[in-house]
Each structure stands twice: as C-alpha cells, then as structure tokens.
C-alpha cells in the first residue's frame, strides 16, 4: 500500500511549483508574524500584521480558495488592521520604541510557545507525511461555487451570523459611547 501510494504520489523531495511558492510565501508570512509579535514599536507591529495577513491571502489563492482570499484582504487587511491602528492611536500608544511592550513573563511565554510548536509540528508531520493535496481539477473555492454552497446549504448559519454582527455593532457603540456627566461608570 505504501508502495502504491509512493507510485501515485509525487516524490517528497520534488515539490511542484505551487508547493515551492507556498513554501516561500509561508516563510514570509511566518517571519512577518514573528516580527509582529516581537517588535517594540507598536505601530510597526500592526503594519507587520498586514504583511502576515496578506501572505495568508496569497496562500489561500494558492490553495484555490479564491473567494476566501479576497474576503481576507477586504476584512482583515482592510478593516481589522485599520481598526487596530485606530485603537493604538486612541489609547495614545507611543510612536517610537516602547521598552515595556513585553511583559515580565516573556521567558515563560517563549517556553510555552516553543513546547506547543514542537508538539504540534511533530504530531502534524507524523500524521500527514504521506498525504498530498491535488490542486488540479476544478477550483475548490471559486466565487461561484462558494456563493452557491453558502446560500444553498449554509443559509441558516449565515443569517444567524448577520444577527451576531448586528449585536456586536450595537454592543460596540454602547460600550464606546460617552456616559453623561452625572452617571457613574
């Protein structure tokens, strides 16, 4: 069975062009994410987050999930990062290097993250070392397919989600509204 799998699957050391592109963009994404969580300049962290999220959008495109990629660009890069930058400005974040960006339990956090990374990567590589994604054939996530599936099989969760978004909108407005003077907050 392993022999048959080896015959039908491409070799481990001869990745396809898509695989190489995925690997390179993945390295850029991971590097941007690491810089984003370690840099001492708060605004730069948000800007490196743009690079990481954009790289993930390219990964979605490489995985033929076209609609998800554009939603990622629109919502994450377009609105979430802008919201984060607004939040940084409204909380009067220092512009230059701020030495207290990291808390005191940084070594513990590093140890926990490294242990989790080692365990997860070991398990994942062990589990999926002989599986390949077949990317040829019809695209799995073109916009037409996604729209059809979303409004045929996933209508009820979709509508529930719109109610949730409305509730979040109202909640954010209520939370950030300035209270009248006499009221104790």
């Amino acid at each position: 069975m392993i022999l048959a799998a080896a015959q039908t699957n491409p070799g481990f050391l001869s990745p396809s062009g898509v695989g190489v592109a995925f690997l390179l963009v993945g390295l850029v994404t991971l590097g941007a994410a690491i810089v984003s969580v370690t840099t001492k300049q708060l605004v730069h962290a948000a800007l490196w987050l743009v690079v990481a999220l954009g790289g993930l959008a390219v990964e979605y495109l490489l995985l033929t999930a076209e609609f998800i990629a554009w939603v990622q660009v629109l919502i994450y890069v377009g609105s979430v990062v802008v919201l984060l930058l607004f939040g940084l400005m409204l909380t009067k974040a220092p512009i230059g290097r701020s030495p207290d960006a990291d808390s005191a339990n940084r070594p513990v956090a590093l140890a926990v993250a490294l242990a989790a990374a080692a365990a997860l990567v070991w398990v994942v590589v062990d589990a999926f070392s002989t599986t390949w994604i077949k990317l040829d054939g019809p695209a799995q996530g073109s916009t037409g397919v996604t729209g059809e599936i979303l409004f045929r099989h996933w209508v009820l969760p979709f509508e529930a989600l719109s109610v949730l978004l409305l509730a979040a909108l109202v909640g954010a407005i209520v939370l950030s509204r300035k209270k009248p003077e006499g009221e104790r907050d």
Partner: peptide
C-alpha cells in the same frame, strides 16, 4: 502539494 506544508505553517 504536500498537505504538511499548510498544516505545519
């Protein structure tokens, strides 16, 4: 493409 790439990433 190998499935391990996106999973590890």
């Amino acid at each position: 493409m190998h499935l391990a790439y996106p999973a590890v990433l």
